[in-house]
Amino acid sequence: MIHTRGLTRVFTVRRKEKVDAVRGVDLDIEAGRLVAFLGPNGAGKSTTLRMLTTLLPPTSGSAVVAGHDVVKDPARVRSHIGYVGQRNSAGEEHRVRDELVSQGRCYGLRPREATRRADELLDLLDLTPLAKRLPGTLSGGQRRRLDIALGLVHRPRLLFMDEPSTGLDPKSRAEIWQHILRLRETYGTTLLLTTHYLEEADSMAERVVIIDGGRIIADGTAEQLKNDLAGDHVVVTTATAQDAEKAVRVAGGTARDTTVRLRVDRAAAALPGHLRTLDAAGVKVTAAETVRPTLDDVFLTLTGRSLTDDDLPA
């Protein structure tokens, strides 16, 4: 569905200052997948998406999207893909239903088809009661549902979504995700989305592509990435700092005050044995827990930075 080779975009800021927003991205995404681009702000997620959706010509490299080259045949690419941008898609002066009908017309539907499709989408995304409203009168979650509806008018096999849930309250985010997942189940749509919510990438995506500094730095299922790059930890709290040091001598790991962290393969299975070893050595343990890694740990391992550090949603 998507194949890129050496996809690169350089922005010229002022006369001589150049910014390499995306540097040589090679990516292959097969049909039917739900893939998340994860990375901090400015990592190149949106720029990559904008090149794949023909909004931005690549500086070099190639991209074939839905069977067509984004540079040589942008019109064909456009008719096969849907796009939900970061900002609101509906014009402020246009009623919800009018805008959906217009969107259908943009994809070449006849007026009657466009109207029928608009009503179908209003129903699908629970927007029917809002059909005559102006976008400005909708809540954040409702507007986002309208954006998604606009992206689905022509039943694309491939849908791009740039931060579909950013800025929404938890309830609206959950609703949006319900719609996205249902869409996939019903139509088998291939989904490529960007997010900076770690939990979302973790729980929803089948494949996570971590981007930093314009490059892909990791690519796999969330489980793979976490196991390979961060791993489980057993964390015990000891009665005293001396006990903690002793625990490190006996069983390894790193101590900080009375807390000892030890990386293991499967934390839940390793915990009982670990506790017996410490007990046999006379280490007094007051609390113990197993810690599964998060994608943030993965990012930390890869870059030495935390994703959450510079990535507070604006």
Partner: peptide
Amino acid sequence: GLLVELLGGAFERLLVTP
């Protein structure tokens, strides 16, 4: 009017259509 659509996302949305 176009400027408003450019600053929002409506124009971008139309640019992605054929």
